[in-house]
């Protein structure tokens, strides 16, 4: 079902919600790693690595999942129409 042909224009808040969150978390990680060097290091490393994980998700994982989703849609469509 098509709900809309064009995406509604986003507000500035919507545009910068994710970028701001990532920026705050990764800078917090950069500074935390400077202040602590024990087990908390793992947490700060994760925060600094966050941009990499998010970029990898959007570049590889999400399109792959969408493709998989599309092909199952196509399959069910063909199955449903095979009996006609």
């Amino acid at each position: 079902m098509v709900t809309h042909l064009f995406m509604q224009a986003k507000t500035l808040q919507q545009i910068f919600l994710w970028p701001a969150l990532i920026a705050v978390l990764s800078s917090a990680g950069l500074i935390a790693a400077l202040l602590y060097d024990d087990t908390r290091e793992l947490v700060s490393d994760m925060a600094v690595a966050l941009p990499i994980l998010i970029a990898a998700y959007h570049y590889w994982l999400k399109p792959a999942r969408q493709r998989a989703h599309k092909s199952t849609l196509k399959k069910t469509y063909l199955e449903q129409n095979a009996t006609r």
Partner: peptide
């Protein structure tokens, strides 16, 4: 956020990669 238009030509794909990677690596 994070949309990379893989199937809409090289130029848009390149632009989306530039914007996505640019904005996530911003702080660093």
């Amino acid at each position: 956020f994070g949309e990379v238009r893989h199937a809409r030509g090289e130029k848009l794909k390149r632009l989306d990669i530039h914007n996505l990677l640019g904005i996530v690596t911003l702080s660093w």
